Lab assay of single mutants.
Amino acid sequence: FSITQFVRNLGLEHLMDIFEREQITLRVLVEMGHKELKEIGINAYGHREKLIKGVERLI
């Protein structure tokens, strides 16, 4: 299971460039909250919320 699959499953594949540029893996994403996601350029609250909720389902 990769970050690419995870992001695609959430319908947020347009954010993949950010994850690749910042070298974010699923392991790193698990540790990130709204503040960190915003810092790397994910400005939409809804997108950040989707990512965080998606990660919570993985754990």
Rank of each mutant, 00 (worst) to 15 (best):
S2Y: 08
S2P: 09
S2G: 13
I3A: 05
I3N: 00
I3D: 01
I3Q: 01
Q5H: 11
Q5W: 09
Q5K: 10
Q5L: 10
Q5S: 11
Q5M: 12
F6K: 00
F6V: 05
F6N: 00
F6E: 00
F6C: 04
V7Y: 03
V7I: 14
V7L: 15
V7T: 07
R8H: 11
R8P: 00
N9M: 14
L10I: 08
G11F: 04
G11K: 08
L12N: 01
L12M: 08
L12R: 01
E13A: 12
E13V: 10
E13K: 07
E13F: 11
E13N: 09
H14Y: 13
H14V: 12
H14G: 08
H14R: 08
L15W: 04
L15Y: 10
L15E: 00
M16V: 14
M16D: 05
M16S: 10
M16Q: 09
M16L: 14
D17L: 11
D17S: 13
D17F: 15
I18M: 05
I18V: 08
I18Y: 06
F19S: 02
F19C: 03
E20Q: 12
E20D: 11
E20P: 03
E20C: 09
E20F: 08
R21T: 07
R21L: 06
R21N: 07
R21K: 11
E22M: 07
E22K: 13
E22L: 06
E22S: 09
Q23D: 08
Q23K: 14
Q23G: 14
I24D: 02
I24M: 07
I24K: 01
I24P: 02
I24F: 04
T25Y: 04
T25I: 04
T25G: 06
T25Q: 06
T25S: 10
T25W: 04
L26C: 09
L26R: 02
L26N: 01
R27L: 12
R27K: 14
R27Y: 09
V28I: 13
V28G: 11
V28D: 14
L29I: 06
L29T: 03
L29G: 01
L29D: 01
L29M: 06
V30I: 14
V30H: 08
V30G: 10
E31P: 08
E31S: 15
E31R: 15
E31Y: 15
E31F: 12
E31T: 15
E31V: 13
M32V: 03
G33V: 03
G33P: 01
G33I: 04
H34V: 03
H34R: 04
K35Y: 08
K35L: 07
E36R: 06
E36K: 07
E36N: 04
L37E: 01
K38G: 06
K38N: 07
K38E: 14
K38V: 08
I40D: 00
I40F: 05
G41S: 03
G41E: 02
G41I: 04
G41F: 04
I42S: 01
I42F: 04
I42Y: 00
I42K: 04
N43G: 11
N43H: 13
A44D: 15
A44P: 07
Y45T: 07
Y45L: 10
G46F: 13
G46Y: 15
G46M: 13
H47F: 08
H47L: 09
H47V: 15
H47I: 15
H47Y: 09
H47N: 14
R48T: 03
R48C: 08
R48V: 06
R48Y: 05
E49Q: 12
E49W: 08
E49L: 13
K50H: 06
L51S: 00
L51V: 09
L51E: 00
L51I: 15
L51T: 00
I52F: 02
I52C: 05
I52T: 02
K53Q: 11
K53M: 10
K53S: 09
G54C: 08
G54P: 01
G54M: 06
G54L: 06
G54R: 04
G54Q: 05
G54I: 05
V55A: 12
V55T: 07
E56S: 11
E56N: 10
E56V: 10
E56A: 14
R57M: 13
R57P: 03
L58E: 05
L58P: 01
L58F: 12
I59N: 10
